[in-house]
């Protein structure tokens, strides 16, 4: 609704901000993971009857560490620090960088999604907290979302039934990351391979999206790994 052209200086709220901001840090992952439940761990998939061609395969990459990192790319030390800890550069617009099981996705000009193996999550979070400087934020969202990988020759058709983003090779090369509307929810899609699409799905929408995806995939033959 509103907008100013010239940024104004904040008027003091009565506090003096400390030189380096102070954040709460907490290992949210218990030592015993045997009872953990990923967003799709209980979903009752309906796969195509055996013997049918399988055009779409779904596979959840469950219980990874997910972090939202926000910061200013104009802060060279922030960019450098993130790269040092993560081992890869923060990717630019609509791109992703991966190193082994660590993937960093661009979400917005000041926002990235980092996924890492669950057992490394706290170490990476701690190291980022130690290393990063200036104005940034780091938020653990591991419980709030999951990765669902759709692969197979017809995975692309499931996407075309679900979102109106152009998934053609010329517009969506491997490694690209796109946040878009998916069915009646939101989704971040990364093309992980020629026939491999990785969806970031929010926990509360997981049942709906899984049901939608398997419905869309039925005509191509659908399997779950």
């Amino acid at each position: 609704m509103s907008e100013v052209l010239e940024p104004k200086k904040a008027s003091a709220a009565g506090t003096v901000a400390s030189a380096e901001p102070v954040y709460a840090l907490m290992d949210q992952r218990p030592a015993d993971m045997s009872n953990a439940e990923s967003p799709l761990s209980r979903f009752r998939w309906q796969v195509s009857s055996s013997g049918k061609n399988v055009g779409v395969v779904a596979r959840e990459l469950a219980l990874l560490g997910h972090f939202i990192l926000r910061g200013n790319v104009a802060n060279a030390d922030f960019v450098k620090g993130a790269a040092e800890v993560l081992g890869v550069e923060l990717p630019g617009t609509l791109k992703s960088n991966a190193k082994g099981n660590l993937v960093v996705r661009w979400l917005a000009p000041d926002e990235w999604l980092i996924t890492v193996p669950g057992e490394q999550a706290f170490a990476i979070e701690s190291n980022l907290r130690k290393r990063l400087t200036g104005h940034y934020s780091l938020v653990n969202v591991s419980g709030g979302q999951t990765l669902l990988v759709l692969s197979g020759a017809d995975a692309v058709n499931v996407l075309r039934k679900s979102c109106h983003y152009d998934v053609h090779d010329r517009n969506f090369p491997v490694g690209k990351v796109v946040g878009t509307t998916f069915a009646k929810a939101q989704c971040v899609i990364r093309r992980a391979g020629q026939q491999e699409w990785e969806l970031v799905i929010r926990r509360s929408f997981a049942d709906y999206l899984a049901a939608w995806i398997q419905d869309a995939a039925q005509e191509y033959g659908f399997a779950v790994k």
């Binding site: 609704m1 907008e3 979400l107 917005a108 000009p109 796109v178 878009t180 509307t181 939101q186």
Partner: peptide
């Protein structure tokens, strides 16, 4: 007009 990229970058 002011628009926001709601399901994209939220900017």
């Amino acid at each position: 007009e002011l628009w926001v990229h709601s399901t994209g970058c939220r900017k």
